[in-house]
Simulated assay, not measured.
Amino acid sequence: MEQRTFDDGGDEDLVFVLVWGNKLYHENVRWLIDELTGAGYRVHAFRIPTAISDFRSEYLEPVAEFVAELDGYRLLSHSTGGLIAAHLDGADRRIYLSPFWGFPEGVLDVLGPLFAKLPTSVEFLPANTDAENIGDLATDRQIATGANAAAPSWIRECREAQRTLPPIDDDAVVFCTLRDRIVSTRAIGDRVPPERIVLYDGGHELFSSSARDRHLDTLLAALEDGSAALSA
């Protein structure tokens, strides 16, 4: 797992856990990080590995050990990062972007239990990570260097983490699109009431979708004030 801090002089700590396949040099990831640091946050970004054999030791514990050293922090996460973030303790605010709390309807949803039994961490199961599904601002480099295949061990570990998902914080806010084909929007709706869900028109990544500019102020307000920002 790669961790990098942006703007050591920021006023408040914000932990940003990225999705499976995101890189810290991806243009749209950096756009969001730049907006966060511009708002005064000291951003601790985590790039997660795409192939794992153990969710707790390879995903959860590295982030949990890091945040344990912080004197309070706000938590922003995207997709698989949202699955990790839901298992973390101690955040003052929790904002989820398209959290991966369930597999979408499709091959991996139906055959996931069978694939998960395969004893391998080789990534060979195709994923829907093309520009159409990611967002209309996704770059060619982003698609080419992102993840495009999943390992059976990753499916197994994510399914177990979804099964043991703790209750979502009462003040948490979720941003998602109903057109998402990478995560289950039903799983989001089952855990968070509609008044704490911000819908946008775009792909799986808000920060890779044209709608990002219309929702940036709401995202920053939610990081500051939690769900109260949505009723202001």
Score class of each variant (00 low, 15 high):
Glu2Leu: 15
Gln3Asp: 02
Thr5Phe: 05
Thr5Val: 12
Thr5Glu: 15
Phe6Val: 05
Gly9Val: 10
Gly10Lys: 08
Asp13Arg: 04
Leu14Glu: 06
Val15Trp: 04
Leu24Val: 09
His26Gly: 05
Glu27Gln: 08
Val29Asp: 12
Val29Gly: 01
Val29Cys: 05
Trp31Ser: 07
Leu32His: 01
Asp34Val: 07
Glu35Ala: 06
Ala39Ile: 09
Ala39Phe: 12
Ala39Pro: 07
Val43Ser: 05
Ala45Val: 14
Phe46Pro: 03
Phe46Leu: 13
Ala51Ser: 09
Ile52Arg: 06
Asp54Pro: 03
Phe55Gly: 13
Ser57Cys: 04
Glu61Val: 11
Pro62Leu: 09
Val63Ala: 08
Ala64His: 03
Ala64Trp: 03
Glu65Asp: 14
Phe66Cys: 06
Phe66Asn: 12
Val67Thr: 06
Val67Glu: 00
Ala68Phe: 02
Ala68His: 01
Leu70Met: 10
Tyr73Ile: 11
Leu76Trp: 12
Ser77Met: 08
His78Glu: 14
Ser79Val: 06
Thr80Arg: 14
Gly82Pro: 00
Leu83Asn: 01
Ala85Tyr: 03
Leu88Gln: 05
Asp89Tyr: 04
Arg94Gln: 15
Ile95Ser: 00
Tyr96Thr: 07
Ser98Gln: 08
Ser98Gly: 10
Phe100Asn: 02
Trp101Pro: 07
Trp101Cys: 04
Gly102Phe: 11
Phe103Trp: 05
Glu105Gly: 11
Gly106Asn: 14
Gly106Glu: 15
Leu108Lys: 10
Gly112Thr: 05
Pro113His: 10
Phe115Leu: 15
Ala116Leu: 11
Lys117Phe: 12
Leu118Pro: 15
Leu118Met: 15
Val122Ser: 01
Val122Lys: 05
Glu123Ala: 09
Phe124Leu: 05
Leu125Ala: 03
Pro126Ile: 00
Asn128Thr: 04
Asp130Ile: 06
Asn133Gly: 03
Asp136Gly: 09
Ala138Thr: 15
Thr139Ser: 08
Thr139Gly: 07
Thr145Met: 15
Ala151Phe: 02
Pro152Trp: 00
Pro152Phe: 01
Pro152Glu: 04
Ser153Phe: 01
Arg159Cys: 15
Glu160Cys: 03
Glu160Ser: 12
Arg163His: 10
Arg163Ile: 11
Arg163Asn: 10
Thr164Lys: 14
Thr164Asn: 15
Pro166Gln: 07
Ile168Asp: 00
Asp169Pro: 00
Asp171Phe: 04
Asp171Gln: 12
Ala172Pro: 04
Arg179Gly: 13
Ile182Tyr: 02
Ile182Gly: 04
Ala187Asp: 07
Gly189Pro: 09
Asp190Phe: 13
Asp190Val: 09
Pro193Thr: 04
Val198Ser: 03
Val198Asp: 01
Tyr200Thr: 00
Gly203Leu: 07
Gly203Trp: 11
Phe207Asn: 05
Phe207His: 07
Phe207Arg: 01
Ser209Gln: 05
Ser209Ala: 15
Ser209Ile: 13
Ala211Phe: 00
Ala211Cys: 10
Arg212Thr: 09
His215Asn: 13
Ala221Asn: 08
Ala222Pro: 12
Leu223Glu: 08
Glu224Met: 09
Asp225Met: 08
Gly226Val: 14
Ser227Phe: 06
Leu230Phe: 07
